[in-house]
């Protein structure tokens, strides 16, 4: 101790990094523990709040349809906007698919996009020689929890018309 002190004062003082290293190591371990290689990722925002659920089934990759309160996104590409309005009966704010996009229950823009995706998936399935890559019509649905069922139904109907018949609703796990 007696030897060190005068040297410190004379030279440039060295920053003690050891404690910072300790901290960093703990953070690193914590983050590594949280690190998960889930197949799907969710971009949460004010307009996309996934519902909580006690479901446990792990998600798998599939065509990803995100229905937020403002738009519809298929595999990361925005397909169309949704319209905010007020419910005639309850007078509460709600969301509808714009009239111009609808043909009965079918959402035309979304239908074309999903049909493309189905064709692509089938093509890949055919090239890979079936098996695991075969087109099974699976679709991941990430929907905002406040959306009315009418919008969900129209999206599901449209997906159904585009040969997607297995729906997987993405939810936030509340238990392990």
């Amino acid at each position: 101790m007696g030897k060190k002190k005068p040297r410190r004062n004379s030279g440039e003082g060295a920053l003690s990094i050891t404690s910072m290293m300790d901290m960093m190591t703990i953070i690193l371990v914590f983050l590594l523990k949280n690190f998960s290689s889930q197949d799907i990722s969710v971009k949460s925002s004010a307009d996309l709040q996934l519902p909580l659920s006690s479901a446990l089934k792990a998600p798998k990759t599939a065509v990803n349809v995100v229905v937020s309160r403002v738009d519809v996104i298929v595999d990361g590409v925005k397909v169309m906007d949704l319209e905010s309005t007020t419910d005639e009966v309850t007078g509460q704010a709600t969301v509808v698919v714009p009239e111009g996009e609808l043909k009965g229950q079918l959402i035309t823009t979304l239908y074309e996009k999903l049909l493309d995706k189905a064709e692509q998936a089938k093509d890949i399935g055919a090239r890979a020689g079936g098996g695991e890559f075969d087109f099974k019509g699976q679709i991941l649905m990430q929907c905002d929890k406040r959306l009315p069922f009418s919008v969900i139904r129209q999206v599901m109907y449209t997906a159904g018309q585009a040969q997607f018949s297995e729906f997987r609703f993405v939810v936030i796990k509340t238990r392990e």
């Binding site: 659920s53 089934k57 798998k60 018949s165 729906f167 993405v170 936030i172 796990k173 392990e176």
Partner: peptide
């Protein structure tokens, strides 16, 4: 890192 863990609920066509 994913701080929320996700799950899926299966459903078939309406």
């Amino acid at each position: 890192a994913q701080f929320i863990s996700l799950a899926v609920i299966d459903s078939t066509l309406p």
